[in-house]
Amino acid sequence: MSEEATISKVWESIPVGDDLGTLDYVLTAQMVADYRRVVDNPHAAYPTVAARHPANLFYRKYAAVMRVPNMGHDSEYHNPPVAGKRITISGRIADKYIRRGNTYLIVEATAVDEDGRLIEKSRLVGLAREVGMQAAHANIAKKWGT
């Protein structure tokens, strides 16, 4: 199959720089405790960050048409979040490319708390799959032998 034949029209239509808007939530003490329990690390510093800030901003806008399974992550950490503080995340499409016939979207999110402290910046490396199309990572699964 040619590389061109696998390119989704939806992926083509998403521009680099696309603004994914902002989203805010209060990081509660319960959320911190739940995260620390499930990862068996009672002192985890970045509870929701290991998290899915980029993905959640992306899906808020594109869930009906596109999936971005996480193939990698680039993050920088500045100040650990404090329970009880409101966190605002903002995001954008930072890049897009085709590699080995697969389409990727790089989704960037920045998190800042209510006091203006920069918490973290993360980039999700998403293997883009148009909803309703064959799962792009089915081919990768074959390579994995799953």
């Binding site: 510093a45 996480n70 990698g72 992550h73 680039d74 993050s75 950490y77 500045h78 490396v125 699964a141």
Partner: peptide, 13 residues
Amino acid sequence: VYGGKISARYIHP
């Protein structure tokens, strides 16, 4: 915690 950076790729399930 204050200034760390990481870049990881998930290469096998």
